[in-house]
Design a binder for these strands. Structure first.
Length: 210
DNA sequence: CAGTTACG
DNA sequence: ATAC
């Protein structure tokens, strides 16, 4: 399979249908297994404690978490169980090697779980110490309406749909682009038994060797 | 400010 | 679109 890489802007790449159905099934099953050891939790906004509408968990040496007391951060353990995160599924590491054009493995795999009503406001992924590495996102399940802006707030934005199996990369000049999820299109995929969407975001958190 | 709400 |  050679899915086309659509370059929307320098460093911004959409690969529709990157994972075929069999790979999507395998990734879903791997994530199900991972979530047995790292149950999804509900992140909260720094200071205000307002809950996100998405639930999340992580795989890999570091995971992204947020709560009222300590805010956005990466940490090596699950905020509720205190256990290390499970390993990043092989399919995702393979996608990173194939698409990221970066010579070191990802350290974090944030797994966002979207129900029919879940959204994610426009934001930047900027809690990493290494912006040289790209951010790689893989979508499973229901299609999402994805909004993409520029590197500062208030600029023009556009929206595209991210379907099950799609890959999306933010790298180089687009590494710090604002992005978010406007809405989920319920019933648009049969991959996940209960419906909804899973997004896996692979990131390098620390500079290599450091 | 990865959040929601209220107002033209 | 703006404010908090």
């Amino acid at each position: 399979m050679s899915a086309a890489r659509l370059v929307l802007a320098p460093g911004l790449v959409h690969v529709p249908g990157y994972l075929d159905r069999a790979s999507q099934d395998a990734l879903r099953d791997a994530l199900d297994a991972a979530m047995e050891g790292a149950p999804p939790f509900q992140p909260r906004m720094p200071r205000t404690g307002k809950p996100f509408s998405v639930r999340m968990t992580n795989c890999g040496p570091l995971g992204w978490v947020s709560d009222a007391e300590r805010g956005y951060r990466y940490q090596a353990t699950h905020p509720e169980t205190g256990l290390p995160w499970p390993a990043i599924p092989a399919i995702l590491l393979e996608a990173w090697r194939d698409l990221a054009d970066y010579p070191h493995p990802p350290e974090a795999c944030l797994v966002n779980l979207y129900g029919a009503e879940a959204k994610m406001g426009l934001h930047q992924d900027r809690d990493e110490a290494d912006f040289a590495a790209p951010v790689l996102s893989l979508s499973l399940g229901d299609t999402a309406v994805f909004r993409i802006g520029g590197t500062s707030r208030g600029g023009r934005t556009t929206s595209i749909r991210l379907a099950s199996g799609d890959a999306f990369l933010f790298g180089g000049p687009a590494r710090l682009v604002f992005h978010g999820i406007d809405r989920i299109l319920p019933g648009s995929s049969t991959l996940l038994p209960g419906g909804g969407r899973i997004n896996c975001t692979l990131r390098r958190v620390t500079p290599p060797r450091g």
